[in-house]
Design a protein around this nucleic acid. Structure first.
Lengths: 213, 213
DNA sequence: ATGAGCATCAGTGTATACATTAATTGCCGT
DNA sequence: ACGGCAATTAATGTATACACTGATGCTCAT
């Protein structure tokens, strides 16, 4: 593994997990010492992070971890609704029905995964990730897929803030199942509507839990 | 101006203007000699270009200029329709009407700019650029604006291929004017429809001129 | 003659020394 | 005492030397 990859992965993880909080300045020398590599791979890593929007170049004086405001969350979900709504519709038109029928069935059994002892809900999130990947593959549009991937990075940060509880995850699984079902049925408008509903409920939940802080 | 900025600007320009054709490998030492800077800023520039998608990292062996296939153009316009349609609708809801009334009036006078002697049609493209900027500002959504900016880089490359002729530019100006008018009227659905029409006509024109080669 | 293995080389990956810039602090003048 | 200018310093920006990896081509053995 290249040193720049290591630096990038570590910093990215630290930012997404909120160990590095917004406003923190990431100085090259400081991070190179912390990560045990030289400045060059650190520069490369910071450059990649800034391109993703996780950090922002602060005019000559290092890069700072990007903040996420309440308006940011609204904006992100507005774009997300546009992109994922279109993606769901395209998947309904172009996807393999069998793939989404399988996902639909798996998602209906998701409560088993949530009631599991794993506090991080790895299996549940892996299943939802499989739905995302299936949609990505079905749309046959690398530019749209790329736009969704860029956005997902920021959404993961938001999710870490929301602290999904079991009731919300159960409801979300049902919503995901509805999306998969609509795609499997080849119903583009229904798939888009199901996505819109799911995202609006997610946003409401995020804002509700966020307002408690 | 920093050396890395210079390297980035030069390479970007060369790729967009098709002086560097798809498949060309950009070796660090080679480019550093050509641009008169050391390898470090060249690396930085290539990194930025790859993040934008203008180049693709070819597994350890340098980066290559990204190709644009016919399918790519279809995919780009599919995403563009999604993003710009939404943007036009939001601008109709949130924008300053006066700004778009002014743009509407200016766009109706665009034929004067096209019949001008300037072969590059700087003034015309500057006017269309002002419409884009006005929409960007009106939507109040930095994530959506960012997604459109990322896409525009690739669209400029496509436009260079299409070689817009005067008749098409006249028609496009009318289409742009219709978008500005709908936004000024605060009619979101009309603005989205006008955008859809414009983009479909643009795509047809691009594909028509492209198929001649 | 052909195939496999080794050696050479070209290229990127990393470290570090040096240049440059911008901010902060201290001093001087008013 | 306050404000501005200058010097210092700490950070990034750049260049370059070195390391390492992957590829290509040559040689030797079968």
């Amino acid at each position: 593994m290249r040193a720049s990859d290591k630096a990038y992965a570590t910093l990215r993880e630290d930012i997404i997990e909120w160990r590095l909080t917004p406003g923190t300045v990431l100085a090259e020398v400081e991070q190179s010492e912390r990560l045990g590599v030289s400045r060059t791979p650190v520069r490369e890593a910071l450059s990649r992070l800034s391109a993703e929007g996780l950090t922002t170049a602060a005019g000559g004086r290092g890069v700072v971890v990007t903040d996420i405001s309440l308006e940011d969350i609204d904006e992100m979900f507005e774009l997300r609704e546009t992109l994922e709504g279109k993606a769901a519709a395209l998947a309904a038109e172009r996807g393999e029905h069998a793939v989404f029928e399988k996902l639909h069935a798996d998602l209906l059994r998701a409560p088993e995964l949530i009631s599991d002892t794993d506090p991080a809900r790895h299996e549940y999130y892996a299943l939802v990730g499989r739905l995302d990947e299936a949609i990505d593959a079905a749309i046959s549009n690398s530019y749209l897929a790329q736009a969704m991937r860029s956005l997902r990075v920021h959404l993961v940060r938001v999710r870490r803030l929301a602290a999904d509880d079991a009731p919300r995850l159960h409801a979300a699984a049902v919503e995901h199942a509805a999306i998969a079902e609509a795609i499997a049925a080849g119903n583009a408008r229904l798939a888009e509507a199901a996505t819109t509903m799911h995202l609006n409920r997610s946003l409401s939940h995020v804002k509700a839990t966020h307002s408690q802080h």
